[in-house]
Design a protein around this nucleic acid. Structure first.
Length: 452
DNA sequence: CGACTTTGACCCGCGC
DNA sequence: GCGCGGGTCAAAGTCG
């Protein structure tokens, strides 16, 4: 099943329409009696036929009856959408609230670190407009140059799910500082690259040539490959040792000469898991869907650079959850709305510097584990009203399709990517993401281009 | 007919 | 040097 990220535009419009409908309802409490009236009409129509009437009259009555039924169904549909719209609002508000809370906590921790480590302020600014990698870099810098962290710090980091596990013996601190500065410079380049990707203007800042970008994404996916928005051409297939499942090799064909390759292989332990490894950097503007996913990869890649083998003192098994990049990459942040830390998707802590990093999107990223509204719920609910606006369009077909979509991991990944892109843009422009997500005009989605 | 997939051959790095 | 395994090439086949 192919997932087209562009449907979000239609979703927004639909939601906007729902929003307006809801507003009208709020403004006009008299609407319900009308509904009631409509239903009464229907009942009347149903009861209308009387013995001895002409055949034409009977047909007319039948038509009226059908019309009334249609109206009734439509009315039910509208009511249902209104309720869902309310639920969506709650989810978004809750997500934003959690996001804000995390921001506050991080700011407090930052301030503490500044005071304790006596690090010159303004080295890298903390902001919410997508500068989290810089912030992350500074955190890393602080962590590395200050091997001794108090229990208090540890507790706070744990509280946030931040557990970089960076340490330094302190013997060669000067040299290390130089290395770290270099890392941060690289990181900022990635960050610039990331932001440019998001704006659809990609002129990729070169990742250091000696470090080939490599990001693995694990997803539950029944299809042969993950639809990430890019065009790929298969150029080879191999049976790799230790895994009877063939490994397929693809290269990006969006632009001629694009060096990006990807490998796709099923996980031996769980055949439903698809391991997609991306390698290299695109030399062309990315399609919308690919942009979002690439942004995920970029952020992950940046994180990887903070943890990679350039730090010999790093044990390489740092727990690195999405919360480590709460503002940079909102795809990770999506699940941070969950009150349960266990519901956090992880960047594989057992990363291998040779293999790059692994984004594990197979764990718990679905909707039904927790009681409250979840991002998964949001994702599922966000989309079906429009993409399944089929000619038959009945509730049954909707329900069937929703079920199918909800169970499709590719769908979740794609939508997460789309929302990542959207939220990143939002944060960059300083716009509120909250309720606006529902009722916002297509100003933002316009960048997504026409319905693809 | 062009774009894409398949698949065996080939290349290259690495360990022994 | 040799074998192994991962990665790539390219001719043949397939598909729309």
């Amino acid at each position: 099943m192919e997932i087209d990220l562009s449907f979000k535009i239609a979703v927004q419009k639909e939601q906007e329409a729902n929003q307006e409908t809801q507003d009208e309802e709020d403004d006009d409490p008299e609407e319900k009696p009308d509904v009631k009236q409509s239903q009464d009409d229907e009942e009347d129509a149903a009861m209308a036929p009387a013995p001895g009437e002409m055949k034409d009259a009977a047909e007319l009555s039948l038509q009226d009856n059908m019309k009334a039924e249609e109206l009734s169904v439509l009315q039910m549909e509208i009511n249902r959408m209104k309720e869902e719209n309310k639920a969506l609002r709650r989810v978004v508000e809750q997500t934003m609230k959690n996001f804000h809370d995390l921001q506050m906590k991080l700011a407090v921790i930052q301030q503490n670190n500044y005071q304790k480590k006596d690090i010159p302020q303004g080295f890298l600014s903390l902001s919410t407009d997508g500068n989290a990698i810089q912030e992350q870099a500074r955190k890393s810098f602080v962590g590395k140059t200050s091997p001794v962290s108090t229990d208090h710090d540890v507790d706070k980091e744990n509280e946030l799910g931040l557990s970089l596990g960076l340490s330094d013996s302190g013997s060669d601190q000067k040299e290390r500082k130089e290395e770290q500065k270099e890392e941060i410079t690289n990181l900022m380049a990635v960050q610039r690259n990331h932001q440019q990707s998001l704006s659809g203007i990609t002129s990729h800042v070169a990742i250091p040539p000696n470090r080939k970008t490599r990001v693995s994404v694990r997803t539950r996916c029944q299809a042969a490959t993950l639809n990430d928005g890019c065009q790929w051409r298969k150029y080879g297939q191999k049976i790799a040792k230790g895994n009877p499942c063939p490994r397929a090799y693809y290269r990006c064909t969006v632009a001629p000469g694009c060096p990006v390759r990807k490998q796709v292989q099923r996980c031996l332990e769980d055949m439903s898991i698809l391991i997609t490894t991306y390698e290299g950097t695109h030399n062309h503007p990315l399609p919308v869907g690919a942009t979002a996913l690439a942004s995920t990869a970029s952020a992950a890649e940046a994180s990887f650079m903070l943890l990679d083998s350039s730090n010999p003192h790093s044990d390489g098994i740092s727990t690195f959850t999405q919360a480590s990049l709460p503002y940079q990459n909102n795809a990770f942040m999506l699940n941070s709305a969950s009150p349960h830390p266990s519901n956090i998707r992880t960047i594989n802590p057992n990363y291998d510097p040779c293999k790059g990093i692994v984004l594990d999107l197979t764990t718990s990223g679905t909707s039904s584990q927790n009681s409250g509204p979840q991002p998964g719920f949001l994702l599922e609910k966000l989309n079906y009203p429009n993409i399944f606006n089929t000619p038959r369009g009945g509730q049954e077909s909707l329900a069937e399709n929703v079920g199918a979509m909800a169970s499709d991991p590719k769908f979740r990944v794609a939508v997460a990517a789309a929302i990542t892109s959207l939220m990143n843009k939002e944060s960059q422009t300083g716009l509120s993401i909250g309720p606006c997500l529902v009722g916002r005009d297509n100003g933002e989605s316009g960048s997504s281009g026409p319905n693809n």
